[in-house]
């Protein structure tokens, strides 16, 4: 074979190889650009996902601040809540009345009182209106030492009045704090005559005079909740007086002291009445 024919053969082979490669590459390009396109589509949805994640985070941040705001505003901290729709009790009655029973669990606290509630809400929907009724309410509260509160809780359960429960709890806690602060204030102001033998959180404050051993005035400050859930303070004055002194009390000052204290409260209000009582008891006769 002469060199030119050899060259021709070699060239032909080279061209064929190049053509094959071209086809192969073309094929590859198609696939790759296909992948590229689908990838672009995919990555777009992925970046949407990222965006939604970012969005979710900022939404969560917003919800958290909303929650802390609400708990500050209302004084109630709801820590857990769950709702269950009772499928078995969901019924559609003949005349287009739809009934849905929901069970709710809610727990949290209002200052020092923690509560755990379970209640059922029956939603009745008719053509004209939609009404919701609490059909069952159970309340567990801690600590249990506030007897006024536990009595009230069972009344709220009986009436199934959830809103009244929260309202009264709020006012109770408010009065409770006020009582504590008032007791503390008098203990600080008159450390020698005011005693809080059961601590600042108790409902008793004792007033003594070092020069009158055996004499003691006890302020009993209770926080009462009435039938309608109204919260109000009830203050009473108890006297501890030695027998002889009672006999000597011709004007029955001691005997009438509780009544006088009541009227004093009515005129002066709690703080001023207590203040004047403490000072009165400690002036030298």
């Amino acid at each position: 074979m002469d060199p030119e024919t050899r060259e021709l053969r070699a060239l032909e082979e080279e061209v064929a190889a190049l053509q094959r490669e071209c086809r192969m590459l073309q094929n590859l390009e198609e696939k790759t650009s296909g992948a590229w396109k689908s990838f672009k589509k995919f990555s777009q949805s992925d970046s949407e996902e990222w965006e939604s994640l970012k969005d979710l985070r900022s939404q969560l941040g917003h919800l958290k601040s909303e929650l802390s705001f609400l708990s500050k505003l209302t004084g109630f901290n709801i820590r857990n809540y769950s709702k269950m729709e009772d499928i078995g009790n969901t019924e559609q009655t003949e005349n287009d009345t739809k009934k849905v029973l929901q069970r709710h669990r809610l727990s949290g606290n209002c200052n020092m009182v923690t509560f755990q509630l379970e209640f059922e809400v029956l939603e009745i929907e008719t053509k004209e209106k939609k009404s919701s009724i609490i059909t069952d309410l159970s309340i567990i509260m801690e600590p249990t030492e506030y007897s006024e509160l536990s009595e009230f809780a069972s009344r709220a359960e009986e009436k199934r009045d959830l809103l009244m429960f929260f309202r009264s709890l709020h006012f109770f806690v408010e009065w409770y704090e006020y009582r504590e602060n008032t007791f503390k204030h008098f203990k600080e102001r008159y450390p020698d005559s005011v005693y809080l033998s059961e601590g600042t959180c108790s409902h008793c404050m004792e007033i003594r005079n070092a020069r009158l051993p055996g004499f003691e005035l006890v302020i009993v400050w209770r926080i009462q909740i009435d039938e309608e859930g109204k919260v109000f303070p009830k203050l009473d004055l108890l006297t501890k007086v030695p027998e002889q002194a009672l006999e000597m009390d011709k004007n029955r000052v001691i005997e009438t002291a509780p009544l006088s204290f009541r009227s004093l409260l009515g005129v002066l209000g709690i703080e001023a009445a207590l203040d004047s009582l403490i000072r009165l008891f400690n002036t030298d006769k």
Partner: peptide
């Protein structure tokens, strides 16, 4: 759930 406390926002 705050609506059950009577105040929500």
């Amino acid at each position: 759930a705050y609506r059950f406390t009577g105040l929500s926002g």
